[in-house]
């Protein structure tokens, strides 16, 4: 039970507007098709805006994740059997919503022999078939670094391959579960080396976990040394008391500083502000690069 008269400690930029009718309409459509979104499962602060404007990021193979990272609000639990009709439903929802760019992510599925990679492939294929004009972004787990899983996804030709580093090297073991900094970097490197130039490689990090400037720059250098194209930087918001303790509401100036530092290092696109999430306005990002 929350205490009365609790003073808000959230910064002003964490204010978002909410149009109930539009959100309800989106929820109806999604539940009608039995689809999960990372927006709802991770309780995203941008949900009102994105659902209000008719966009969503689908989370396949869920809703339960086989890992329990300390920053994440997606439920950890016993995974459900793979639903082979899910890829088609994602494609149908994408078409119904008229999305010109779709983000498909998943929970971790360390329980499956293919670690969930085949369902990504099936979803990409379904999207290609049902809504061929829609650009596709996949936001994947690390697949334990297994290149056979990555090869299949590369072959399916997503427009953007996204895998989040989440944080700097020193904090990774404190917040991620069964995932390492070097494995994630290896995943990005492998995809960049093996995918065609039509697949952009993207990653994202959270701020406010206690990272230092030099560590963020070291991470940027690591990413650019393997030619990662896009970088997203946003504020960590602690989902509950049980989760990793928020160290800091990072001031806006630092987002701007990191933006410039990233720009200097040659990322093709950088989104850096508190409410940025890995799939937030992903379409604008891709469009900006296509226009160049």
């Amino acid at each position: 039970m929350k205490q009365n008269n609790k003073k808000t400690t959230k910064p002003v930029w964490l204010k978002v507007t909410y149009d109930q009718k539009k959100v309800d309409r989106m929820n109806e459509l999604l539940s009608g098709l039995s689809l999960n979104t990372v927006c709802a499962e991770a309780n995203c602060p941008n949900l009102g805006e994105c659902f209000g404007s008719g966009t969503a990021s689908f989370m396949i193979l869920g809703p339960n994740c086989t890992r329990s990272c300390r920053f994440c609000d997606v439920p950890h639990g016993h995974p459900k059997p793979v639903d082979l009709t899910e890829p088609l439903r994602v494609a149908q929802a994408t078409k119904k919503l008229g999305l010109t760019h779709v983000v498909v992510t998943s929970v971790d599925r360390d329980d499956l022999p293919d670690l969930g990679s085949d369902q990504f492939v099936r979803t990409i294929q379904a999207l290609h078939e049902v809504t061929p004009e829609t650009t596709i972004e996949v936001l994947t787990p690390d697949f334990q670094g297994r290149t056979d899983c990555l090869d299949k996804i590369i072959a399916a030709k997503p427009d953007v391959f996204n895998h989040n580093m989440e944080t700097v090297r020193s904090i990774t073991p404190k917040v991620r579960h069964r995932a390492t900094y070097s494995t994630s970097l290896g995943v990005l490197k492998y995809v960049k080396e093996h995918a065609t130039s039509k697949t952009f490689v993207k990653t994202g990090i959270m701020l406010g976990l206690g990272e230092k400037d030099e560590e963020v720059y070291a991470l940027m250098n690591d990413l650019r040394s393997i030619n990662v194209d896009f970088l997203t930087i946003g504020q960590y918001v602690q989902p509950s008391e049980k989760h990793y303790k928020l160290r800091e509401w990072v001031p806006l100036e630092r987002y701007q500083k990191y933006y410039h530092e990233a720009k200097i290092r040659g990322f093709k696109f950088i989104a850096s502000s508190p409410l940025v999430r890995s799939s937030y306005k992903a379409q604008e990002e891709l469009m900006a690069v296509y226009e160049k």
């Binding site: 959230k10 204010k15 507007t17 909410y18 149009d19 109930q20 609000d73």
Partner: peptide, 20 residues
């Protein structure tokens, strides 16, 4: 319709709720 009526704090965010 569309004016912000009030603000509510949830775990992750402060939501401004609009009038219907």
């Amino acid at each position: 319709k569309g004016d912000v009526l009030f603000e509510v704090e949830t775990d992750k965010v402060v939501s401004q709720v609009e009038s219907q």
